[in-house]
Structures are given as C-alpha cells and as structure tokens.
Write a protein that binds this DNA or RNA. Sequence first.
DNA 1: CTGAAAGCGCTTACAG
DNA 2: CTGAAAGCGCTTACAG
Lengths: 357, 357
Amino acid sequence: MSNSPTDPGSARGGRPTSSDVAQRAGVSRTAVSFAYNDPAKISTATRDRIMAAADELGYTPDPLARMLKHRKTGTLGLLLPQDIAQVMQNPYYAQFITGIGHVCEREGMTLLLCPPLRNSMLKAIPYAAVDGFIVTGLEADRGEVAELRRRKIPFVLVDSEPVTDVPSVEADDDKGGYDLVRHILELGHTRIAFLIFESGPDQPNLGYRGPLKRRFAGAERALAEQDLSLTSAGVVTVEAPCTRSGGYTATLDLMAGQAPPTAIVAFSDIMAVGALDALKSLNLPVPAAVSVVGYDDQPEAEWTQPRLTTIRQPIEAKGRLAGDFLVAAIRGESQHPRQLLHGALVVRDSSGQAPPT
Amino acid sequence: MSNSPTDPGSARGGRPTSSDVAQRAGVSRTAVSFAYNDPAKISTATRDRIMAAADELGYTPDPLARMLKHRKTGTLGLLLPQDIAQVMQNPYYAQFITGIGHVCEREGMTLLLCPPLRNSMLKAIPYAAVDGFIVTGLEADRGEVAELRRRKIPFVLVDSEPVTDVPSVEADDDKGGYDLVRHILELGHTRIAFLIFESGPDQPNLGYRGPLKRRFAGAERALAEQDLSLTSAGVVTVEAPCTRSGGYTATLDLMAGQAPPTAIVAFSDIMAVGALDALKSLNLPVPAAVSVVGYDDQPEAEWTQPRLTTIRQPIEAKGRLAGDFLVAAIRGESQHPRQLLHGALVVRDSSGQAPPT
DNA sequence: CTGAAAGCGCTTACAG
DNA sequence: CTGAAAGCGCTTACAG
C-alpha cells in the first residue's frame, strides 16, 4: 500500500532503504550504493548530497542484504555442545574462545555463539548466518558432521577422533592421560581416584567420548603396565560437575569412604583445585597424605597451595589454529589441514610419594 | 552463463538453491518453501519428493535469505569495548555473558560477539546482522549510542550513566565504592592504596569513566567524611592489568615503597586475589598487617586464604536483565525499562583493624 | 493442493 | 559520472 511505485517506502514505519535516500537526494539507488562502497565512481558533490540525505533519514545499508548479495557474512560460527551459560562457566572454553578471538581480530570478523536449539546441535546449524563453523566436542561420526558435509559449508573439527577429509585440530589426550597416570604410578600410588567432569545431558550413557575417552585410554595403558586397570580394587572413578565446588564435594565423599585414595587424578584443573580445597578442610596434607593432579594447566594451577601438577594443554593455541584453519577453508585455500597439539606433564608440588601403608 | 533460464543453477559450483530442488522434484519453488515452512499446505507425497530431492542435492534453505525476508535474525548482538580475546580473559564478562546466555536459551537465539572493527566500536555496528544490541562499557553521550539511536535499532545500555530514553541496566557503583571505603576507614586505616584496572587503549586519558568513575566518586565521599581525599598523603592509586598477576605485581611495587599502605582497595576481585598472593610471598599477614578488599564477589572470593571482603555485584543478573530488556525492545513491548542493581558489602576475613602505628 | 509473481534491500556489470 | 536492469535466495499473499 504505502509501497506503491510512487512512494518507495519513505512513509513506512520501518527503517529507510537506499531507495528512500536516492529519492531524497535525487539520484539512483546505484549512486547511493556507490557512495558507500565505491565513492570514486561518483562526484564529490553527489556523494555529499547522498550522505546528507542518509543522515537526515537515519539510513545505513542493511547488513543482511549486503551479506546476501556478497555471499559472505564476515562471521565465524562456534557450534557449541551446551548452552552459552554453561560454556561461559567453563574456563576451558573461555581460553578456547580467546584463541578464536585473536583470529577474529586479525580478520576483522565477528564470532557467533551457536548453542543447541531445543537441545539439538543439529537444529542450530541451519539458522546460523556464518561463513563457516568451528565444531567442538563432537565425534566425526555424528549426524551434525554429516549435515555440515552435506551442506558443503566450511567447518573444522576440534577434539574429535582423527579424521582425514576435514580440517581438524586435535590434542594428544591419550598421551596426556598416560603421562599423568604413569607419573602417579611411579610415585607408588595404587589407591587412585579419577575425578572426571560429567558428560552432559546431551549424550547420556554413551560411555565416555571425545577427549575424556582418550584420556582414559591412555590411563588404562599406564595402569596395565602395572597390572592394574580401571576396575582394579582401589581404583575408582567419580563424576562431578566441572567446577571447583564439584571437585570439592566429590573429594569430600571420596575421603569419607573406607580405604580412601592416596592419589586423585582430576581430568580438569578446576576440579583439582576443588579437591585441594577439600583436603585442606580435612587437614590432609598434600602431597604427604594425598597427591592431586589436574589437567589443562589453567593459570590457577600455578597459584594453588601447593602448586598443581598437571598436563599442560595449549588450549588457546587450539582455538587460534581452529580459527586459522576455518578462515583458510572459507577462502578455499587449504585442503584438509590437520594439527595434533602436544601436551606436557608439568610436575609441581601437589604430587609426591605414596604414603607408606 | 551457467545461470541461463534453462539451467537455474544446478550446474554451478555453489550450493543448491530452492530452484534446483524444485526442478529436480518437478514442483515450483513455492512448494519447496512450503515443504520446510508449512508442510500442511502440500500433500505428503509432494513433500516426500521434495525432501528426497533436497537430500540428494544437499540443500538447506539459506539462512541469510530467510532472515532478509523475515526481517529478523534470531540473534542478539553484544557490542564489546575490547577484542574478544581480552574480554574472554575477564571473568566479569564471562559472568555477564552467562546471564545473556540464559536469555538466549529461553528464546532460542544465538549471540553475536561484536568486537571493535579496526579499533572502532562505531565501525562494528553496521556489519552486525542482529535484531538488537547490548552495549556495555559506554557512556550514553558516545557517538556509538547516537548512531544506534539514529538507526532506530533496538539496544540496551549496560553500566552507562543513567539515561531515561533508552532501556538500561545500571549498578549502584557509587554506593559500592562508598561502602567499601567506609568499611576500610572504620577499621582505622589511613594509608590506603586503590588498585584499579587499566582503562584500555580505546579511551586514553579521558579520566575515569563508567563504573570506575562512579566507584571513585563513592570512595571520595567516604574519604571526605574523614577529611581525606584521593590526593591526601598516604592515599595512592595504581593502575594495572585486570588480572591476577596484574594485582600481584602492582602490590609488590606498592609494598616496596616507603610508608606502604595498610589497606589495599582493589576494584576487581581478581586483582585483589593477586594482591593476596603478593602479600603472602612477602610474609605479610592479612589482615593483621595489611587489609585487602575486592569488588564483584566472584566465586574465587570465597575460596581465597583468607576469604575476601568484597562488594557483591549481581553480574549474571545484569546480563540476564540486559537480555530480557533487549528481547522486549525487539518485540516492541516495552518502552524504556530501567533497572538499578544493588550491590552489597560482604565482610569476610581479609579486612581488619589497621595495625597500630 | 499448486504455481506465477512480487518483494525483502542491497550490489554490480552494462550501457549510456 | 550516472541510471535501468538483473540478481543474491528466499517467502508469501494471491489466483487458480
């Protein structure tokens, strides 16, 4: 109605379009577009007139229309396995996103956080206006990955099983788990508790997956060398939320049991810090009575009392590489780069000889 | 070329469009659209045929085109005053984003992180495909806010000066600063060091702004009640990066000076924790020799040794409210809601009587 | 139940 | 230096 040929929109309630500006400035829409994108193509006078009109009308080119035309959005998508709130609570993700952030800065791009939609990562994919996805916490055989493949949209896999036909960034979690447990075993411990983070409601009872699965695989190898296993007497595994208080509570429970562990292997620094808190509150000296080790080497690990033995993992580098690979894939530059990131055992003061029995 | 009327795109290198699917299924583009958006309008047989064709072609509706047509993106924009990497390092933002995340989950929306583009927040605005912005760390008189107003795009201001014609979420930082300093003064301290975070390169030498400015205003009121001021002998202010090690290093410097402070007022918990570290390494008992107080009441504050006296600030609630206000504004529901969030002094163990002189 | 047509707001060869 | 036209890929009244 108000959209008749004679009134191309200026009377509508909505925001002004390039037609409105063109009309007001007495030029074509082409000229308006040039004023913003290629000022050399029009005279200065025309440009000034257009900009003045745009200013009066409160016009700015619609980013959506621009993106549709250019077939690019200038944004990287991060497909998340959990809600934004949960992710932000996890220092691991904060570091990972920091790494991606460096790439965004360099490329002048924005970052879209894409949490599951109605509990489904799959459903979140088609609604994201991005040039490509970074996918974390997903095995390559999941439906989401197949969907991404099918849509031929650039993406990179982080922390999945090794795959060869997709850009991917992996960490040697198997080796990390092995090194950590071997260190503990060399100190003479045999009563060992594994303190792990809950897998999340998304994938219940599927057994451990992803990095956790690989860390356990490494742990089992180390145990096997001493004729032990995850099911040996004295070896236990407890799950808790991936937070400091999660580690605290779980450790309190653990130490209240009979034949409590002499070593606690937490697969997350933040949980290890909680374990340290619990042992302090129980007046159990670390590492004299109980050893505690973590995973990730978060900054906190250096500040705890005693300082935490842990596996250093280059989380930020992981994010940065994932971003680099994605940008390359978007540009069609690289084929299927893969990078395996190495961790390292960092021995500090929280692990020591097993107490005599 | 390959785009001739007889070949609507299926032979192109790019992704398939609804035309390709329509052609393959022998229906119109309308039918394809209905298959996705309103299946009741076509027969089951037709729908199946369409979906099969879509599957073979790897088709999914282009989110950009959809958004352009619907005039909504389903994403909230967070306009950041710093790069993503810096923001993610700051636990304040992690909590704030957590709050927004709850809203995203409830609404099924995504969150776009919009860092400055070429060092300019202003330049970042026109490139963001969002339904509205949450703007943090900006005074209402800044150009960015004027630009947002001009474009008539929904937005909410967080931690700005009070404004009435825009949805906003504020915290009573003035009262926080007052309460904190009054607490310290009541304990008899007169040699006081303020430990504050650097303002960032974006706004150099403009004096303190935003929450920092208001906290200082409150602090000055409290000082004035004791005939002191920020420039009194014994009262100093030092700036450092808003990190644990920033607080650590600054405190070491502070205590090495002559007439070192007996109270350290950090306007950030994370810096206060660093101060605690430094005092421990100097063997200065807290609070017997030196009192330390923080701001924010991050989870860490309860875990430090000794536990930290601080101002509790509902950061997550701040994010949640900002999200709620923005969603309401996008829907055109609310006018200009404002919410002032209250903090509270939480006295724990890190503050005590000033040592006798 | 299905299709031709207009339109979301922009950009970019192309012709003048 | 400027403008008419086609097109990015979709959706949605409208007419059948």
